[in-house]
């Protein structure tokens, strides 16, 4: 009996010591982690508010937030639960808050954060949608800010520039049908002239990823599910 108590006591003391050490490290790293996450978000917002075609900002430079306070001033919709919308058909979610910016041409630009379920967990994407004069939405660009559960070398390539570009500039017509990756849209194998047709495929709601993400379909599927959820949310809330 005494032996068992001794073992229990030793394990308890060990756990308490480890718990104290972990708590101490957590306190030290809490602010740097929040800072890293904020920097990643601010950088992503600036990125998605840049035109992929011209490389120029779609909003005036002074509108780009550089601190949490400036970012908070751009909040358009928020929800204390942290979740604004869940796609009823696919695992795509829109997170709170959604930001609204005013473009140089006077058009509203919505910046949304959302996630889909990838190979290892959440794949978090930031995307900008421009509401055009006819009230239809045009997706400008995306940035994948958290893919830490995806396989390095495969799914984790989702934020490589050559992969990310495939999700840029999707027009309203593409979202009407629901955006899909080319394998899910039965566009596989790809025709020899597919590179020249990437824009056309986007109008049809097809994002070609199988050539740049070989061996990883689940991660880009998580991104398109997120984009579809974002579009549905805007259709419901911003029309």
């Amino acid at each position: 009996m005494g032996k068992h108590i001794k073992i229990a006591l030793i394990l308890t003391i060990l756990m308490v010591v480890l718990g104290v050490v972990l708590g101490f490290v957590y306190m030290i790293t809490e602010k740097p982690i929040a800072k890293s996450d904020l920097e990643a978000k601010l950088s992503a917002i600036k990125f998605v508010l840049t035109s992929p075609q011209t490389g120029k900002l779609l909003v005036n430079k002074n509108q780009i937030p550089t601190s949490l306070a400036q970012l908070d001033s751009k909040i358009w919709k928020s929800n204390p639960s942290g979740l604004l919308y869940k796609d009823p058909k696919y695992p795509g979610y829109v997170l709170s808050p959604v930001y609204k910016f005013l473009g140089k041409d006077g058009l509203p630009i919505y910046v949304l954060t959302g996630y889909g379920i990838g190979f290892g967990g959440k794949v978090v994407t930031v995307a900008a949608f421009i509401q055009q004069r006819d009230k239809k939405f045009y997706e400008n660009a995306i940035d994948v800010i958290n893919y830490s559960s995806e396989t390095p070398g495969l799914g984790a390539k989702i934020n490589n520039n050559n992969v990310r570009r495939r999700f840029f500039s999707i027009p309203n017509s593409g979202f009407k049908r629901g955006v899909k990756v080319n394998k899910d849209a039965n566009l596989f194998p790809l025709p020899s002239d597919y590179i020249s047709k990437l824009g056309q495929y986007k109008k049809e709601g097809i994002v070609v990823t199988s050539d740049v993400m070989t061996g990883a379909t689940i991660t880009p599927r998580a991104v398109v599910n997120t984009l579809n959820a974002m579009y549905d949310f805007l259709e419901k809330e911003a029309r």
Partner: peptide, 25 residues
């Protein structure tokens, strides 16, 4: 496990890009 959690927290705070790239490993 405690030491790995410490490394994970430190990487998240100070080496964000590498932390994202190494992912679940």
């Amino acid at each position: 496990a405690a030491l790995v959690t410490i490394v994970d927290l430190l990487m998240h705070g100070y080496m964000y890009h590498l932390w994202t790239n190494l992912g679940l490993y």
